[in-house]
Amino acid sequence: MRRSPGSPAHWPRHVIMIVVCFLMLVPFYWVIKTSLTGENIYAWPPRIIPVDPHLFNYVDVWYMIPFARYLLNSVIVTAMAIAGSLLFNVAAGYALTRHFPGRRWIVVLLLSCMLIPFQATIIPAYLVTSWLGVLDTWLGVALPLLSTIICIFIFKASFEAVPPSLIDAARVDGLGEWRIVTRILLPLSKSAIATNVILTFIWSWNSFLWPLIAIRSPDMQTLPLGLARFLSVMEDTTGALFAFVVLVLIPGLAIFLMAQKEFIRGLTSGATKG
């Protein structure tokens, strides 16, 4: 006995969900409002709607800090992480579809590696990176993200769904292994690629602890570091800090809204695997 949508018994649920959504959106509103406020943001009582809204806080933040430089660092690190992780994960995912001695052992190893949170490795990871000589470089920041276990398994599952006869036919036609991957498997795994790109983007763009450790010089800082630094240097000034926050959040939100399905699929695919 399903009730049709919109029937009277649904409205209490709508009310609850609207209240929940309102509460979830308040922080967004508060920060956007503050970033547009022209008057003193510490005035009491705070205005719900700014009296004199303008966008100049965004201009200020561009010049108050080397915003362009932070943005460049973030973009380069993220691009390196995406390109590298795509290459390595595709290769590893393909290798795991083949039968070879010790395959099971490697799968178990990877699955157990998934249990180790990166945050629990920061001290040795720092030492390893300094030993490799890539501290304070873009590569050093991107390196730990270059390969992600979830994505390897997503690719493995996606490749296994391709009919083997297709691969065999290609092999008979004399295509090399890498060509089989790029010409036949990848065009059939676009959703896996999207998941990999989006997850790596979010992780790399938002990552804070690792750049905080791996980066020393001011002009190598990424956006999250710049944000934390801006906060500590001039927290009591204007709405510029909040303009910075909004600017930094926009790319992540945009990517998420554009590819919600792939993003959620990627996050939960770890969950659905037995």
Binding site: M24, L25, P27, Y42, P46, N206, F208, L223, L231, G252
Partner: peptide, 28 residues
């Protein structure tokens, strides 16, 4: 979507947003 919206955000920015919400002068 709305409930999930806050998850993919940069945690540093989330920290700054909430710090401001808790502020004793301009906070929500």
């Amino acid at each position: 979507t709305i409930v999930f919206l806050s998850y993919p955000l940069m945690t540093v920015a989330v920290g700054i947003i909430w710090r401001w919400l808790y502020d004793e002068r301009g906070g929500f």
